[in-house]
């Protein structure tokens, strides 16, 4: 690819991710409102979409306060980590066959590495605040993230086995021949979905910030744009996980094969990618609207006693099928 195109894709991804994260602030509340028989934010601008801008202005204009009892270095470093790692994670997402920032031969592992580094933001935020609620939130997130990283990595190994590559472009190309992995790797998909929610600590598994027990968990002491970065990181990870689910399990830029060829030829691949990612984001928001938060020990035992055996069995069967059939 030409250098110019790569630069365009990089800036497009950056702007797109930030813009999408800002719009998601409004979109999530609006959608939650509909699911809870409310209207949601609808005052600022048409359909209330100005809320995204208003929120950004509010966060930028707020006092950026560092509590005197906090560990200054750690406190300031923490919120940047999640945004940086999540943006780096977008580097390996293939939007179409030819439109991506980098097609690493270890793309999948790179994504896993970036999500595992994102833990530090929560962890150090909790550690640097010198606040007991923040510390408890950080502790919870450390245990939760380290546990669910295991299943997240393992659940993808079946996909890697079938496609024989860590490269995300290759994985999607395999799906063009073999059908989407959501069918052949259904349990892998389920586990990856759960682990994805836990990694981005979205609502059913948002125990690090469980507001009715821990005030706000790890970001209790944060305000202004530092809190904004945490929020941005959360939405970025939501988008990243959604696009990863799309890429790995729902055929990325491929259209559904049951549609007639006329439609598949007419709709450009990137539309399919964004449509699937958007649907996935909506599903995450639906989870938030519908499912209550589990207790912390329930979360851990659910992970280790159900998801881990499920992934291992899935891996075993996939390996056996590949080897003997």
């Amino acid at each position: 690819m030409e250098e110019l195109t790569i630069f365009l894709v990089i800036y497009g991804t950056l702007l797109g991710a930030f813009g999408a994260a800002a719009v998601l602030v409004w979109f999530e509340r609006r959608l939650l409102g509909f699911w809870q028989d409310r209207l949601g934010p609808n005052r600022v601008g048409p359909f209330g979409i100005g809320l995204a801008l208003a929120d950004v202005i509010k966060l930028l204009a707020k006092e950026d306060w560092v509590p005197p009892f906090s560990d200054r270095l750690v406190f300031i470093f923490a919120p940047t980590a999640v945004v940086i790692t999540m943006l780096l994670g977008f580097a390996v997402v293939p939007y179409t066959e030819h439109l991506f920032i980098a097609d690493l031969n270890i793309g999948l592992l790179f994504f896993l590495g970036m999500t595992s580094l994102a833990v530090y933001s929560v962890l150090l935020g909790g550690l640097g605040s010198h606040n007991k609620y923040a510390l408890l939130g950080g502790l919870r997130s450390a245990a939760q993230m380290v546990s669910y990283e295991v299943f997240m990595g393992l659940s993808l190994m079946g996909v890697v086995m079938i496609s024989g590559s860590f490269s995300l472009v290759d994985i999607v190309k395999t799906q063009a021949e073999n059908g989407w992995f959501v069918i052949s790797q259904f349990f892998g998909f389920i586990v990856f979905l759960m682990a994805g929610i836990a990694e981005s600590h979205r609502l059913p598994f948002d125990l690090p910030e469980a507001e009715h027990e821990l005030v706000a968990g790890f970001h209790t002491e944060y305000s202004g744009m530092k809190f904004g970065l945490f929020m941005l990181g959360e939405y970025l990870s939501l988008i990243l996980i959604s696009s990863m689910i799309t890429t790995i399990f729902f055929g990325g830029w491929l259209g559904p094969s049951f549609l007639p060829d006329l439609v598949l030829d007419f709709v450009p691949p990137i539309i399919w990618f964004f449509a699937k990612t958007g649907t996935c984001i909506c599903f995450f928001i639906l989870l938030r609207a519908a499912i209550p938060r589990p207790r912390y020990d329930q979360l851990m035992s659910f992970g280790w006693k159900l998801l881990l055996p499920l992934t291992l069995v899935n891996l075993l069967i996939t390996g056996a099928v590949l080897l003997w059939l």
Binding site: G33, W35, D37, R38, L39, L286, A289, A290, I291
Partner: peptide
Amino acid sequence: ISLYRICLHLFAKADT
């Protein structure tokens, strides 16, 4: 089931 039921509320009239 609760996911499905909540999803159906997309088509319900808002009480606001």
